[in-house]
Nucleic acid binder design. Structure first.
Lengths: 339, 339
DNA sequence: TTGTAGGCGTTATCAG
DNA sequence: CTGATAACGCCTACAA
C-alpha cells in the first residue's frame, strides 16, 4: 500500500500543498469549503503525516529513551509500566534499553539514544556505574534527563527517589523493636547510592538504639540475586550463629535467605527475623511471608515521566528549567518474618 | 550544544557536502587526503548523522514496535528481554507498548506504531482480542509482523509459539500418572488461542486415559490473577471436594490456589496435586514448590526478533518473504506439588 | 576525484 | 483565503 502524502491530496484536489497542510491543521485562514474537501479526501485515503518528515521539520521525535538495569525485575518492571502509561497519555513513545548492570552497555545505550535524537532520557544507573562521563554528555547535549532510584548525586538533573536512608533506618528499627539484639545486614554493591544509603540507615538505627555496629555483620552482594541470599544466609549461620535479625537490601535476596533457612529448618521469625526491601509480589506468597519496605514503583515511573515532560516542554518554549527532586514515601509492611 | 551537520564540516573544509558525505561513508571515489581530513574534523566535532534526515531519506527508522499485554509479568518481561537484547545487537531500537489486556488500547497502539513508521511490529494479543481488523491493517501497510504466544490463527504472519495443546496434555498426563483420578482445570479466558489449546490438551489427556470429562470441573479465569486462583481454589473445595488434581493455566494463578490451600490447611500434594504453567520464578521459592511447564520465554523473544529481522531485510531488498512459524519446546518440571 | 542538483514530506514565511 | 518558496539534513544519480 502506497503512503498518502500532502502532495497527492493537493494534486487530486487541484490545490497547493500549503493549503492542504493548513486545512489539516485547522488553520483559521482556510475556507470552510476547502477545509472540508481536504479533510474528506484525507480521511478516505487514510492520510497520516509522515513522522520522519515531521521529525525533521520540528526537530522533535516525540520519543523518550529509558535505560534500566533489568527488565525482569519486580521493581523496575513496575516503573516501566508507570512510564509507558504516562508517556502514551501524553503522546510520547518509549524506547527501552537494558544495561544489564553493566557500565559499558549503559554507555553505548546512552550514545544510541543521543544519536536517535530522543526528546528526553529517563534512567536508573547500573551497579557498575562509577563514572558519569556519559551522563554528563546527555546534559552537554541539552537533552532533558531524569534519574530515578539508582542515581548519581553528582549529576545535576531532576530525580525521583525514595529516602533510602530513612527507609532502611525504619526497617532496622522494626527489627530492633521486635527484640533483635544482633542484626546483620546484607547490603547491595558498593557503587549504587541507594545501597550506600540503606547501609547508612542500618548503621544509624543501630547507633540510635545503642547496639554496637560490627563490620563483620555486613555482607555485600555483588549481583543481588536469589542465590546470593542463600549463600549469605549460610555464611551468617556459620560465622555469626547468634545473629537474630537480618535486614536485606532487597526482597529477591531476602527470599534466598528464607529459602536457605527453610531448607535447614531454621525457624523464622523465632530463631531469626528477616526484613526485605521493595515489596516484591512474591514476598506475600512465600512461607513465611516476608516483612518488607514498600516502595512506590509505578508512581516513581509516573513521577519520572512528569518531570521529564515538564523539562521537555520548557526546552521547547526556550524557558529555563531548574531540575527538581521528588521524594516518594515508603512504609514498613509487617508480615510473618518479623512477628 | 549545537548539532554538527555535513554542511558545517563542508564549509569548514571548503569542500562540498557531497564529498563530506561520501568521505564519511568511506566511498571509494574520495581521495585519501580529503577522507582523512573529513574524518578528523567530524570526530573532533562529534558529528553524528541526524537520524531524522536519514529516516526521511532511507524511509526506515531502525526501530521496531512491541505490543504486549503486560510488562509486570514473568513470562512477558523475559520475552522483552530477549527482544531488546537481540534488537540492539542488530542495530534496532524497540518501542514497547502495553495493551493491558484491552482490545481498545491494543488498536490504538497499533495505530501509533504504524504512524510512527516503525520498520516492524512484534505482538502478543490481549485477552480481549476477538477482532483482528487492526492487525490486518498492519499487513495491508506491508509492515513486517511477528506474532508470539497469544496469536491469531487467522492472521497470516510469522509466529513464535509453543505447542500449548501438547504441553497441556503432558501436564495433565503428569497429574494422572501421579495418581489423580478427578482433575479440575482452571483455564484462561475464552478468546486467547493458547487458553483454548491448553484446555483442549487437558481434555485430550483425560480422554486418552479414560477419565470422563466434566464441564463442571473447568473454571474460567477472566483476569488471570493471583486472586482468581484463590477464588477458584475455594470454589473447587466447596463444589467438588473429591477433586485430587488441578491443572492451572499459569503459575500466577496456581500460586493463588496454593495460597488458599495453605491458609486452609489443605495438604498439597497429599490431599490434592497442582501443576501450573510457564515456570515463573516464584514457583520455585514458594512452599510447597510448584510443579509446572517450562516455557522458553527469553528464547521466544530472540526467535521473534530474528523472524522479524528476516522479513524486514526481505522487504528492503524487495524479495518476497513467506511467513514462518517457529515452535519452541517445553518440558514438565516436577517439584513438590505433584510428588 | 569532486561537485551540482533534486528530492524525501512537512512546515513556516511571506507575498499575492 | 491561497500558494510559491525555502528550509530541515541527508543521500545519490549524474555531470564536470
Amino acid at each position: 500500500m502506497k503512503e498518502t502524502t500532502l502532495k497527492q491530496i493537493a494534486e487530486a484536489l487541484g490545490i497547493s500543498i500549503t493549503t492542504v497542510s493548513k486545512a489539516l491543521k485547522n488553520y483559521p485562514d482556510v475556507s470552510e469549503k476547502t477545509k472540508k474537501s481536504v479533510l474528506e479526501l484525507a480521511q478516505s485515503l487514510h492520510y497520516t503525516p509522515n513522522s520522519f518528515a515531521v521529525n525533521l521539520r520540528t526537530k522533535e521525535s516525540r520519543t523518550v529513551g529509558l535505560i534500566i538495569p533489568e527488565v525482569v525485575h519486580h521493581f523496575f518492571s513496575n516503573v516501566i509500566n508507570g512510564i509507558i502509561a504516562e508517556a502514551e497519555k501524553n503522546g510520547y513513545l518509549v524506547i527501552i534499553l537494558q544495561s544489564n548492570e553493566s557500565l559499558e552497555l549503559e554507555k553505548k545505550q546512552v550514545e544510541l539514544l543521543i544519536n536517535k535524537r530522543v526528546d528526553g532520557i529517563i534512567m536508573s544507573l547500573s551497579n557498575d556505574s562509577n563514572d558519569e562521563q556519559h551522563i554528563k554528555e546527555i546534559l552537554k547535549r541539552e537533552i532533558p534527563l531524569v534519574q530515578f532510584d539508582k542515581i548519581s548525586k553528582f549529576i545535576l538533573s531532576s530525580k525521583v527517589v525514595i529516602n533510602d536512608q530513612k527507609a532502611a533506618f525504619e526497617a532496622t528499627e522494626h527489627l530492633i523493636k521486635k527484640g533483635c539484639k544482633k542484626i546483620a545486614h546484607i547490603r547491595g554493591p558498593v557503587n549504587p547510592q541507594n545501597a550506600i544509603d540503606r547501609f547508612l540507615g542500618y548503621k544509624k538505627a543501630l547507633e540510635q538504639y545503642n547496639i554496637p555496629f560490627d563490620y563483620n555483620l555486613v555482607y555485600t552482594c555483588k549481583n543481588v540475586t536469589f542465590e546470593e541470599g542463600k549463600l549469605f544466609a549460610s555464611q551468617i549461620v556459620k560465622e555469626q550463629p547468634d545473629v537474630d535479625g537480618i535486614f536485606v537490601i532487597t526482597d529477591l535476596v531476602a527470599v534466598g535467605v528464607l529459602s536457605y533457612f527453610n531448607e535447614h529448618h531454621i525457624k523464622v521469625p523465632n530463631d531469626i527475623k528477616v526484613i526485605g526491601f521493595s515489596n516484591w509480589f512474591m514476598s506475600q506468597v512465600i512461607t513465611p511471608k516476608l516483612s518488607t519496605v514498600d516502595q512506590p514503583s509505578y508512581e516513581m515511573g509516573v513521577a519520572s515521566f512528569h518531570l521529564l515532560l515538564e523539562e521537555m516542554n520548557c526546552r521547547k518554549e526556550l524557558i529555563p528549567f531548574a531540575p527538581r527532586t521528588i521524594e516518594l514515601p515508603t512504609n514498613i509492611i509487617e508480615r510473618e518474618t518479623t512477628l
